[in-house]
Structure formats: structure tokens, C-alpha cells
Amino acid sequence: MISLIAALAVDRVIGMENAMPWNLPADLAWFKRNTLNKPVIMGRHTWESIGRPLPGRKNIILSSQPGTDDRVTWVKSVDEAIAACGDVPEIMVIGGGRVYEQFLPKAQKLYLTHIDAEVEGDTHFPDYEPDDWESVFSEFHDADAQNSHSYCFEILERR
């Protein structure tokens, strides 16, 4: 099963200049909980913004210009990325925008964090048809001392 995991502000903004323009430790914990011990696929820009392999996960970098870091697996196509994951129950696609666009048609599940923030962004989550998805989990949280904005975790499964 292919799943996408993303944090989205208003207007589906997911990033600005290779960074997330908010401070939500709870979302980072949600991300870790849902990706640990699963292969993660990301684009080169996302890889560069993280700066290191995510521990406890097979890191697969999709790029037309593969790098030389041998701590991760470099691939040039969506099919190659899927094959590099091996026989696993769930593959997690973690961004960025172009990689989400490439995998959305193949995805069966979306793990979304909806952030109540209007922020400037240069990267967006692809538009998706809500009628194609069923919400199977939703959990709202107010902003607090650690988390700069209110947010809602949601899991959607393709109908």
C-alpha cells in the first residue's frame, strides 16, 4: 500500500524555501509514529532540507540527478522507488510537492495534518478530489505552549 503523509496549511501550503513555516512538535511526533519502520520516499529537495537519513526507516530518494550519499537509496523513477521498498505492507511518501503529485494517483491512504495557519509558501500539496477519499480518523488539537497553531490529524482512505 502506498501512503502519503503531509502537513498542510491553508491553501495546501506545505513548504517555503525548503522548510515548513510553522513550529508543531506534535506533528513531528505524528510523522515519526506513522513512518517508523517503514520505507520513506522523498525528493532530493526534501532530502536536502532534512540533511540526514531518517533513523529507523529505509530512505529512498527520487531524483533525476541521483546523489552520492550511500546512506540512502537513490532512484530515478516512481517504479524504481516502489521496487526499492521491497515487499512491505506500507510505503510512506513524505514529499515534496512534485513527489506527492507523482504518487497521489497510486496512493491508497493519506495521513494529513491540517494546520490552521495562513502562511506564504512556494510548495503545495497537490489538489485531490475529496469525494474519492473517506475520512477514517480525525483528531483536532488547539494551539498550545509547544505548538504554534491549532491542527487536525486526519487519515483518508481511497474509496
Rank of each mutant, 00 (worst) to 15 (best):
V93A: 07
G15P: 02
F137E: 08
V10P: 15
A26Y: 06
R44S: 15
P55W: 12
V78G: 09
R52A: 14
P55K: 12
P89Y: 11
S135I: 15
S63H: 04
T68Y: 15
Q102I: 13
I50C: 10
W74Y: 15
E134P: 08
E80V: 09
E157G: 08
R33S: 14
D127C: 13
D127A: 13
D69K: 06
E48L: 15
E17K: 02
A19W: 10
V119F: 02
R33M: 15
T123C: 04
R33A: 13
D144L: 03
P66R: 14
E154A: 14
W30R: 10
L28E: 00
N37G: 08
D79H: 12
D127F: 14
G121R: 00
R57S: 01
L24C: 06
A83N: 10
F103M: 07
A9P: 02
K58A: 13
V72W: 13
V78L: 09
H149V: 10
L156D: 00
N59A: 14
V13P: 00
D79W: 08
E134N: 09
S135L: 10
Y151R: 06
G121W: 00
K106G: 08
R158T: 05
H141I: 07
S150D: 07
G67L: 13
P130W: 12
E90L: 02
P126A: 07
R98D: 04
P126K: 05
K106F: 11
P89K: 06
S77A: 08
H114D: 02
V13K: 01
V99H: 14
K76L: 14
E139S: 07
R98F: 14
M20L: 01
S138W: 05
A117W: 03
C85K: 01
S63L: 02
M20A: 00
K38D: 03
A145R: 06
M42Y: 15
V93C: 07
E48S: 15
I82L: 08
W47T: 01
V75T: 12
R12Q: 15
V136K: 10
L8N: 01
R158F: 05
V99G: 01
D122S: 02
D69W: 09
T35G: 01
L8K: 07
M16K: 02
G51F: 07
S150V: 05
W133H: 00
N18M: 10
E90Y: 01
V93L: 02
C85V: 09
E120S: 09
V136N: 09
G51H: 13
M42C: 02
E129N: 07
I60G: 02
G86Y: 08
E80T: 09
P25C: 10
K58M: 14
P89A: 12
W74V: 12
L62V: 15
S3V: 00
Y111L: 07
V136S: 10
L54P: 01
A117K: 04
